[in-house]
Design a binder for these strands. Structure first.
Lengths: 312, 312
DNA sequence: TTGTAGGCGTTATCAA
DNA sequence: TTGATAACGCCTACAA
């Protein structure tokens, strides 16, 4: 018990005793056992983070930001990459909870009711990220995909374009953005809108072939709006391969402002979101709540910004 | 005890009993406590993964591969992003060990002796990744950065170039690659070699300004060899901004075959390594060793391949 | 300031 | 096939 105090609450231990403990620690190479500690205190200093993917560039900044911010506050990150199926997520979160994490970060707001039940039952703080809803499970930091879509639609409204093509990954949030843009563009009867859903992974190859498919039968577009910068990059390549200049012959829009977007040629016009900030603040909200500190607003809209570059 | 058996070793439990247990599990929403389980069995089904960074594209595929492969075998991944300082790594691994992971993945082969001592003391399997040595702490899967450098040097040997510029991140492995190339190129007395070390993060901006710095005073190069594709991408942009065509006026070489390298214009000539395979196999080796299965060779050289594209 | 007793939730072991 | 007991290593609560 004295050792435990010397290590965790040294101010109530006599300095000489602390020194003796530290000596013993050094000699024996003692490393505390947090399993036992967590079992006793019901606090694990563990945060579970659940994301669909990290190697598509979309979430990796957020994950690294969460990891960095948590480390600064003495937490470890249990990272789980679950793909895009809500059922998989449910099972995985259930096993994750068996580690008794002090908090959980979930991507998106669409979870099975079973998952919500489990989490409520576990009674730990949750932050949902990368989406927005007035009714989160617990806390939330993200942005409105619908508004992003609206903003994209409005951006093109002034351009006098009439023929729009949407290339959209089969991802719930991507679909919401797409529909948000279409809702705006449908406002003009002269607008023609074509949509193509593509399967994951939404890589460049997929973008290229998607454009080929859309342009079959010599169909032409004024603007191609993609659900990610990666698809946009592929579309741009394919357009140029077909002899179309971007943006003179066709405009191309992406999403997320991934690291290459600014440096592509043409630089990709896109919607930027503060991926790093989402992570930092998600970690902060969790740690604050766990430690009983005041958490400001439980629902944070971090916004987005249209980044007009060359491609549209 | 019967519950424990019903859940973990059902074949020794009467089916009717199992059913009763399952009913109770469902009704109560019981989730096992792996802290207690780990404490009792000394097996946690946890693997700690230590990487310097994930958002620079270098390690993210490997990390995702590790996570996927571990999940398939019932392990969770405790991910720690430690930066590039060996001292930081030591402290962080020490705290990580307090979770009693069943195994550890470490990036690189250069660790403090203190770290090695701690890990040996913990007596758990370790896989070092992304480098090669005949004397790993335990197991290893990676490739020789020196040989990569040699190969790059030899590639340029035939080209008849004489003026070489190296732009190298201040990263131990990057330096080894650079020196490997220089060792080869020094073989011809007419070769002039200029080196520039750049600080992290080695992003595109850094690549651009590095080239500007090297070309100060109208210095010209036949080839610029960069320690990453990201730097190469920046160098290419800057070269073209200065009116130089790549590769006609100057060749540019990258490293790692990051996702954008094939799609850049000009497509980046680089060295490809099986980032995904490293992760899959690292996870497999660990899980095998933990579970007492035969691990083949403890040291695996996964190799590399020169990918000749347009930029060099 | 230090020490003792008991409990956290599981599993190994032995008994029934 | 099921149950009882003890132990894993730590911390809370209380006593000295």
């Amino acid at each position: 018990m004295t050792v435990s105090r010397a290590l965790n609450n040294p101010k109530v231990v006599r300095p000489a005793t602390i020194a003796r403990v530290m000596d013993a620690v050094k000699i024996t190479g003692y490393i505390p056992n947090m399993l036992a500690g967590g079992l006793a205190t019901r606090r694990t200093k563990l945060i579970a983070v659940v994301v669909p993917q990290i190697n598509n560039n979309m979430f990796v900044d957020t994950v690294q930001a969460i990891g960095d911010a948590l480390a600064l506050r003495g937490y470890h990150m249990l990272l789980c990459i679950v793909g895009y199926e809500p059922e998989d997520e449910t099972d995985i979160v259930a096993t994750l909870l068996s580690r008794r994490p002090d908090g959980i970060v979930l991507t998106g707001i669409h979870h099975t009711s079973e998952l919500k039940r489990i989490i409520l039952n576990a009674n730990i703080p949750v932050v949902e990220i990368w989406d927005l809803t007035p009714t989160p499970v617990d806390m939330l930091i993200g942005f409105s995909h619908e508004k992003v879509g609206n903003a994209v639609g409005e951006y093109f409204l002034d351009k006098g374009f009439t023929r729009f093509g949407f290339i959209c990954a089969s991802d719930r949030r991507a679909v919401v953005r797409k529909n948000g843009a279409i809702a705006v563009l449908r406002g003009r009867p002269e607008h023609e809108i074509e949509e193509l859903m593509v399967s994951r992974p939404a890589n460049m190859e997929v973008g290229r072939s998607a454009l080929r498919q859309m342009m079959a039968g010599d169909k032409r577009f004024d603007a191609i709006i993609c659900s990610s910068d990666t698809l946009a990059q592929g579309v741009i390549m394919e357009a140029e391969a077909q002899g179309l200049r971007v943006p003179q012959d066709v405009s191309v829009m992406g999403f997320a402002d991934l690291n290459f977007a600014a440096h592509n040629r043409p630089a990709i016009t896109t919607v930027s979101v503060d991926k790093w900030g989402i992570g930092i603040r998600a970690a902060g909200m969790l740690a604050d709540k766990i430690e009983g500190k005041a958490v400001g607003e439980p629902v944070v809209d971090i916004g987005y910004s249209l980044v007009i570059r060359e491609s549209a």
